[in-house]
């Protein structure tokens, strides 16, 4: 499966997918120490985003989330890449500063179509592509 998306933060990333059905705040929902999801109301509670392609619908909550992405990147526990249905300034800026490839507005509903542990590649250059292996 291969489809287009809008490029927010450039680069190439690959890894196993981790999919959150619900919006994510990088302050409070994810531990900056180890990348583990600490939001108990999320069905992926306890999983780590570290090295994964993190897929979620949209951001929510705190505007400090950009710094959390930077912290995680420097500690080596950031997601390898991020796919969102719709991005906003907080996560966009965090991804750009932390140099984490990020694409949004995918041609298919990635939150439904991509499953946990699918192998996913993000090509975020002049154009954006997402490739999913099953």
């Amino acid at each position: 499966m291969k489809f287009g998306a809008r490029v927010i933060s450039k680069g190439y990333a690959e890894g196993y997918a981790l999919v959150s059905k619900k919006p994510v705040s990088f302050l409070g929902d994810v531990s900056p120490e180890n990348g583990v999801i600490v939001d108990r109301e999320n069905e992926i509670y306890g999983e780590s985003v570290s090295g994964r392609i993190f897929v979620f619908p949209e951001g929510r909550g705190s505007t400090v989330g950009s710094y959390t992405l930077l912290r995680m990147k420097k500690r080596g526990c950031a997601p390898a890449g991020i796919i969102m249905l719709r991005s906003e300034a907080i996560i966009a800026v965090g991804a750009i500063v932390a140099e984490i490839p990020l694409v949004d507005l995918p041609e298919v509903n990635v939150v439904e179509e991509i499953k946990n542990d699918d192998f996913v590649r993000i090509y975020a250059g002049k154009e954006g592509w997402i490739e999913v292996d099953r």
Binding site: S66, Y67, A89
Partner: peptide, 9 residues
Amino acid sequence: TNRESGISA
């Protein structure tokens, strides 16, 4: 104002 990140603000 948009919801800026600390960094974009």
